[in-house]
Simulated scan of single mutants.
Amino acid sequence: MAIDIEQPRVLTADNYYDDFTYMSTSRFKEFIKCPRRQLAIELGMWEDKKSNDAFIVGNYVHSYFESPEAHRRFLEGHRSDLYATKGKTKGQLKAAFKVADKMIRTLEVEELFNRVYHGSSGDEVEKERIFTGELYGIPFKCKVDSINFTGGYFVDLKTMDTLAGEKFSPTIRRYTKGVLYNVLEYQYDLQMYIYQQLIAQEVGYEMTPYIMAVSKESIPDKELIMVTDSILDHGRQILEANAEMIRSIWECEMEAEGCGHCDFCLAHKTLEGYVTLDELF
């Protein structure tokens, strides 16, 4: 299997999520996990059955802080996702979005959040600004939650299950705080590096990335995190280690290999012999 690259087009708010001529960080991450699965999805040969609830909740919060108009458009376009359609709660806002409202209330009263995310008086700030560019021969795109051209920084708003609670990270093979778990396991280091580089290609210098993290707990936790050079360098290493493989798949120079354990690979697995328990250690 292989996929042809179309000529990249001009991106707008209306066509951004439908566009496949540019690579997004989310798709790049999926190619890293299993190139063959992601390629099959993009060719229409496999359905991604993962829930998009977290994505919708995230956009619910993002649109609120973008503008009243953006939030209103989001509510009108996702009514079927937001409200229960049966049972005792029919017509009521679903539980996940009640939590999202709590996250919104938590952030909007924070002076530091408002100053950083919306900027101080006189700052040139844009919300949901689209940037495109090329990294390692791959056309990339990104949409930045908030970028402050006056302050020289950008902010990515992240909703997380927990910030302080500990979770086991396979990357570092130990339990760590929820914030670090999310950065490592969801590869926010890669995302922030790509965003920084795409922005730099347009503005001419590297801006400082911040993650505004807020938790989905009953009483939401929040933390403003500056993404340091060491974290960005780790993201750069991930990009460098995988870019050539993914570019080659896009340009039809090589076949995509499977990871061997995702849903796509298991559905297409055939037995070719036996293994010993010793081999599984």
Score class of each variant (00 low, 15 high):
276 T>Q: 13
174 R>K: 08
84 A>C: 09
259 C>L: 10
270 T>R: 15
246 I>A: 04
117 Y>T: 00
244 E>C: 04
99 V>T: 15
170 P>M: 02
237 Q>R: 15
1 M>D: 03
193 Y>E: 05
171 T>S: 08
114 N>S: 10
66 E>Y: 00
47 E>M: 02
257 E>N: 05
167 K>D: 02
184 L>G: 01
55 F>Y: 13
31 F>D: 04
10 V>K: 15
23 M>G: 00
51 S>P: 06
229 D>P: 00
76 E>V: 08
121 S>Q: 13
117 Y>D: 00
174 R>W: 04
275 V>R: 09
159 T>F: 01
202 E>Y: 01
220 P>K: 10
210 Y>R: 02
148 N>C: 01
5 I>N: 04
257 E>T: 15
244 E>Q: 14
245 M>K: 15
16 Y>E: 10
19 D>F: 10
47 E>T: 07
215 S>K: 07
68 P>C: 04
147 I>Q: 11
26 S>Q: 07
129 R>N: 00
140 F>Q: 06
131 F>Y: 15
218 S>W: 04
25 T>G: 09
205 Y>R: 15
147 I>R: 14
250 W>I: 10
198 L>C: 10
266 L>F: 10
125 V>W: 04
122 G>L: 02
3 I>Q: 03
130 I>P: 04
102 K>M: 15
70 A>F: 05
115 R>Y: 01
83 Y>W: 09
276 T>R: 12
54 A>V: 14
60 Y>L: 01
71 H>M: 01
65 F>H: 03
205 Y>W: 12
187 Q>F: 04
280 L>G: 07
95 A>W: 10
77 G>D: 11
169 S>A: 04
